[in-house]
Design a protein around this nucleic acid. Sequence first.
DNA 1: GCCGTTTTCGGCCCGACTGTTTTCAGTCG
Length: 569
Amino acid sequence: MAQLLNEIADLLDLQGVAFKPVAYRRAARNIEDMDEPVADIIARGALQDISGVGEAIAKKVEEFVQTGKLPYLEKLRSEVPPGLLEILRVPDVGPKTAIVLHRDLGISSLEELKEAAENHKLRGHKGFGEKTEEKILQGIKMLEAKGQRMLLGDALPIAEAIVQYLKTSASVEKISIGGSLRRGKETIGDIDILVGDEAPARVMDAFTGHPLVETILMKGPTKSSVVLQKGIQVDLRTVGTKSWGAALQYFTGSKEHNVATRKIGVDMGLKLNEYGLFERASGKMVAGATEEDVYTALGLSYIEPELREDGGEIEAAREHRLPNIVEHDSIRGDFHMHTDWSDGVHKIEEMASKGISRRYEYIGITDHSQSLKIAGGLSPDRLRKQMDAVRKADEAMGGRIRLLSGTEADIKADGSLDFPRSLLKDLDLVVASVHSRFKMPREEMTRRVVAAIESGYIDILGHPTGRLIGRRNPYELDMEKILSAAADSNVAMELNAWKDRLDLADGHCRMAKAAGVKVAIGTDAHHADELDFMRLGVITARRGWLEAKDVLNTMNCKDVIRHLRGRRP
DNA sequence: GCCGTTTTCGGCCCGACTGTTTTCAGTCG
């Protein structure tokens, strides 16, 4: 649905229509952000409750869901050559340029544009010169080579390396990651970095001179963009230090959050830009040195970067009822990891020492169960042996960390668990996950998972939707039903922190919290270093508005053990 | 097309960089 609305926006753009494209894109984005199927929202009669969806768009959405057709879109498509849409994807080519290309030069596809640029047919026309021609060719090349969005867990280390490089090579005064990366989105389009410094020229030179830089897209006195190897775009922006807070606020986004905050400013007779918050009449600066100052001056509580998605945080900040979202150092343990007993790399003791170095109070050893042969799942007999091994290792730790003996038990197709109950009840911790028959119909899959939740033998539902970001869709599930069953049985939902899972996703975390279900962040580490994925999990939990009390592994060791033991039949 | 601590009509965030211009339009974030 969101795709169709975005297409309508593009087509309207290409017809030179004003304002409507913005409205359609806003509706598309907010519909896309919903964690509930559009059909269900329609059934609840709540379509127009979505911000940006009014009468006209609601009618079109309902029409499409009911009939599978959208005559309005079909009409637009018939009015605009289909190839013009792909021309819009070329960087630096927007609707105005595309219209001119089509109207004056008869270009109506990417192929034709490429050919015209290569044969220098563009230069000479009003507004088109040699450079524009080159830029368009370069843009088409980038489009063809364009990689997918990066995972949060892949982008973060690259960005941190560049920050470190600029700190040492240009000794900048202030520096921070910005953009979607600072907000902790699960995938990142490009990397944004902000520098607060009074003499930015040397910073720009250092940045564009970074050894990994392949192409310099633009370089100005305060703003530069480069492309690294593998097609990763990095934008650097500098401001004076007295504007640091306003600039960081601006450069963190999201775009929608910025529009909303700037509107609040407008309503108060203020103007917000990256240099500060100013009185519109006098031009006097009201705030800007810190983000806190800016939000306070707008009558808002400070809003954490992870919440800045225009998803209700502005209203909550105005009423000073924002959640006190979970901090990274509140995490006291990890509930999900594998060792060399199944498909992990390291020994129990090696995982434990990594846990100690992370200052954990406890870790759960949860190797695979017997059905998952491909991952060396443990037979009941082997699991008994491992329980002994974990206990011995635990004793050897001398109280520095507590090792919980657990399993990641398969939930079989019929909803039963992969070990006999007599065995499960002797474990400290049972994570249960779906690893087979991913394509079950929604109702059947829901029944399967609910059966496992209601078994009374599981503590945590592992990677609840099974999605792999950019690679595998979530299995079909009625999340409301799952959460309701979990609330009744006091079973926690895992937030699997492995970098391509992040499952539960942020939106589902909010649903879990609303349903009164606790979230357990587990890394699913198969290597000791992967315990560090915890921070991706915490970032996602923060994006899901979770507070420390909503997250199971903020509990201290004593309480966790009491909690788990209390659940044993 | 949407929306309202002024508003149900008349607005709709704001600025850097680029290229092609003799002062600005288009694109992007």
